[in-house]
Design a protein around this nucleic acid. Structure first.
Lengths: 137, 137
DNA sequence: TTATATCCTATAGTTAACTCGAGGTCAAGT
DNA sequence: ACTTGACCTCGAGTTAACTATAGGATATAA
């Protein structure tokens, strides 16, 4: 089973522009072409794009993802680099999760704060908090 | 207790450029100035900047954060908008957490994959997986 | 009082990641 | 043969969020 660029685009929720941009940036050296020059995506190409999206979500810039793609071309000699890279990505995502949890804590606090204020009709209900009880209003 | 712009910058891990940029974008209408024109940050200003950073981490663009800041100036009449905004942010962050968990799942899978490959010295140990057993390599 | 560090504004430049337009090719249907 | 829709390349444009530079004011310390 193979796919056209627009099929892959809708499969991965990207635009064809984005896919061609990735290609230009060296993220898709394995995608083959028809005699007429059209891209033909194999199942493994789609899977690799999935990994690319995953690395992007982990906060990795496209330039760095290209290095990983190059390592793939170089075979077993780059196994260590690739392992190290994913280990590093894992740590990065763990950190993002912690940050996101802190963000969530403050937002939930604000939801409570505004819920109470709305019920009272005024923010003044919170006027006598804020004496070192908690860090945020 | 008040702070200079560079004190606030290091407190929040931002640059003074960024803070002035925020000011220009309308995120700091409450910060006062000395006779000579220098910004003087109060404790409440720093707290508000904390909230701003939180909204940024939740994926909110600066233009939208400015709306929130304007609502603050308008007092109790905007309590509902502010409550709705934080409720919406909460949903956005929950979604981000789910996405990040999916990212983590794939990355952990890749860590295992490369650990095994590294121990075997070749990626070929994984050659007979990939028959619908799991979605990703 | 003079040096130096920190501040100011205004404006221009940078970076990443797209996004689009022009002009042309290719392949399936009529 | 011809139209139509999807594809192609190349290069320019866009957007958000900074980041930096120039030129100048302010304030503290020797």
């Amino acid at each position: 089973m193979t796919y056209s660029i627009s099929e892959v685009a809708s499969k991965l929720n990207l635009t064809v522009y984005t896919l061609r941009y990735y290609d230009k940036e060296g993220l898709m050296p394995f995608v083959e072409r028809t005699a007429g020059g059209k891209r033909v995506f194999k199942e493994t190409d789609v899977e690799l794009l999935n990994v690319i999206e995953c690395l992007k979500s982990s906060g990795m810039p496209i330039k760095d993802i290209r290095n990983f793609i190059e390592w793939l071309s170089e075979g077993d000699s780059t196994l260590q680099q690739r392992y190290d890279m994913f280990t590093e990505r894992k740590a990065a995502v763990e950190k993002q999760m912690e940050e996101l949890q802190k963000t969530m804590d403050l937002i939930e606090h604000k939801c409570d704060y505004y819920k109470t204020a709305l019920e009272a009709g005024t923010e003044d209900v919170h006027k006598n908090e804020r004496m070192g009880k908690s860090v945020f209003s």
